[in-house]
C-alpha cells in the first residue's frame, strides 16, 4: 500500500528557459477526492508557471477556506503561501501586494469562499484592480461540508442530494466585469488547452486578472442534472475565439492559422493572439457583458477570454504607492531628512 508520488520523472523531461523542470513547480500529492476538477486546475497552474519560466520563489499563493483553498499545497511547492481566513484571501493578498509589488500573486478561491462569505472582499479587490491572478474553482457546491448548494449553483440544478436549487446563481464573471476587473475569463478544468494559456495571460496582465474555472465536484455534484458536472458542461460549453499566448521573450516567427484577426499587447510586452470571433470584442467591456448574458439566456456556458484592458493601471499606480518591496527601503528612503522636509514645506508656501 502506498500513496506516494514516485520521484522518477520522464527521462526526456525538458527544462524551461530559466533552467527549471516541471517538477520544480509541483507541490505535495493532492488529498482531494479522486477526479476532482481542482487537481486539474493545480496542474494547469504548474504547466503555466513552467512554460512562463517564472521563478518559484517570486510567487505567492494565497487562499481562503474550502476544497479549492486547500489546493495551493498541491502546486508550486517552492513558492510562498498563505492559507487565510474564510473569504478573506483578497485582504491578505492586498496587504502582501502593497508590501511587495514585485512578486506574482495567485489567489485561489472557491464559489463558497468568493460568492458567499467573501463576496464583499471579492468586489473590492476587483474594483481596486490589485495586480494579482484570482482563480475561482467553481463547482457549484460546498464540497468540504458534504455538497450543499452554493451561491453559484444554477436555478434548477440538482446535486447528488437530488433537490433542485431554487435560488438565482451569482455569475462571478459578470460581477467582475461590472466592478471594473481588467482581465476576465471563464474556463473549464477539463479543457487545459484553453485553461493554460489563460493562466499564462492572466499572470502577465498588469492588474486584477479573474478566471472563473468550472471545476466539477465528482463526489457531490457530478450528476447528469447538475449544471456543473463534467457531462453537462461538455454538452453546453461554447468557447470565444481560440487564443494563443505569446510571452515577451519568444520571437514571433510562427505562421498563424487563417482567421487570426486580433493582437493584444499586454503591459510587459507579451502578446495575446485572438482568432476570429464575431460575437465578442474582448477589449470592450460592454460586448463581454452582453455575450455572457446572451449565452446565459440560451442555456450555454461561454468560456475563454471575455475581457482584457491592455492599458490597465494597477492599484500601486493608481495609489502612487511604492512598488519596490518595503523591506528594501532603507533609512534614507524612509526618512529623507530636514532638507526634503523644507523643500515640501517650501512648496506649500
Amino acid at each position: 500500500m502506498s500513496y506516494v508520488r514516485p520521484a522518477f520523472r520522464h527521462p526526456e523531461s525538458k527544462t524551461n528557459a530559466e533552467g527549471f523542470t516541471r517538477q520544480d513547480y509541483e507541490g505535495a500529492l493532492s488529498t482531494l477526492c479522486a477526479g476532482c476538477g481542482h487537481d486539474s486546475v493545480s496542474s494547469g497552474i504548474v504547466d503555466a508557471c513552467f512554460e512562463l519560466g517564472v521563478w518559484p520563489h517570486r510567487v505567492a499563493k494565497i487562499s481562503g477556506i474550502g476544497c479549492s483553498s486547500k489546493t495551493p499545497t498541491y502546486f508550486l511547492g517552492k513558492s510562498h503561501g498563505f492559507n487565510s481566513v474564510h473569504g478573506r484571501m483578497p485582504s491578505v493578498a492586498t496587504g502582501a501586494n502593497m508590501a511587495n509589488g514585485e512578486m506574482a500573486y495567485i489567489g485561489i478561491s472557491g464559489d463558497g469562499d468568493s460568492a458567499s462569505i467573501g463576496l464583499g472582499q471579492f468586489g473590492h479587490v476587483a474594483r481596486r484592480n490589485l495586480n494579482m491572478v484570482y482563480i475561482v474553482e467553481n463547482n457549484g457546491c460546498y464540497g468540504l461540508t458534504k455538497g450543499q448548494d452554493s451561491a453559484t449553483t444554477d436555478v434548477g440544478s440538482k446535486s447528488k442530494k437530488g433537490d433542485p436549487n431554487p435560488f438565482e446563481a451569482i455569475d462571478l464573471c459578470a460581477m467582475a466585469l461590472q466592478l471594473g476587473a481588467t482581465f476576465v475569463a471563464r474556463s473549464f478544468s477539463g479543457d487545459k488547452e484553453q485553461l493554460v494559456p489563460l493562466i499564462k495571460a492572466a499572470m502577465t496582465h498588469n492588474g486584477f486578472a479573474f478566471i472563473d474555472v468550472i471545476s466539477p465536484c465528482v463526489t457531490f455534484n457530478n450528476t447528469p442534472a447538475s449544471s456543473k458536472g463534467y457531462e453537462f458542461v461538455r454538452d453546453h460549453i461554447e468557447a470565444t475565439g481560440k487564443m494563443d499566448f505569446v510571452p515577451v521573450r519568444s520571437e514571433i516567427t510562427a505562421n498563424y492559422e487563417p482567421g487570426f484577426t486580433k493582437e493584444i499587447t499586454l503591459h510587459y510586452g507579451s502578446v495575446i493572439h485572438l482568432y476570429k470571433d464575431d460575437k465578442l470584442d474582448c477589449t470592450d467591456r460592454g460586448s463581454a457583458m452582453r455575450a455572457i448574458q446572451e449565452h446565459n439566456d440560451k442555456g450555454r456556458i461561454l468560456t475563454g477570454l471575455l475581457y482584457v484592458d491592455p492599458d490597465s493601471k494597477d492599484f500601486h499606480k493608481v495609489q502612487q504607492t511604492v512598488k519596490q518591496p518595503l523591506r528594501d527601503l532603507d533609512e534614507e528612503d524612509l526618512c529623507p531628512g530636514a532638507r526634503a522636509l523644507n523643500a515640501i514645506n517650501g512648496s506649500l508656501r
Binding site: 520523472r9 520522464h10 477526479g35 487537481d39 486539474s40 496542474s43 478544468s189 463534467y230
Partner: peptide
C-alpha cells in the same frame, strides 16, 4: 472514463 484528466495530472512520467 469521464475525461476528468485526474490520471493525466498525477502521472509522474506524463505517459
Amino acid at each position: 472514463c469521464i475525461e476528468c484528466d485526474a490520471c493525466v495530472d498525477i502521472c509522474p512520467t506524463e505517459c
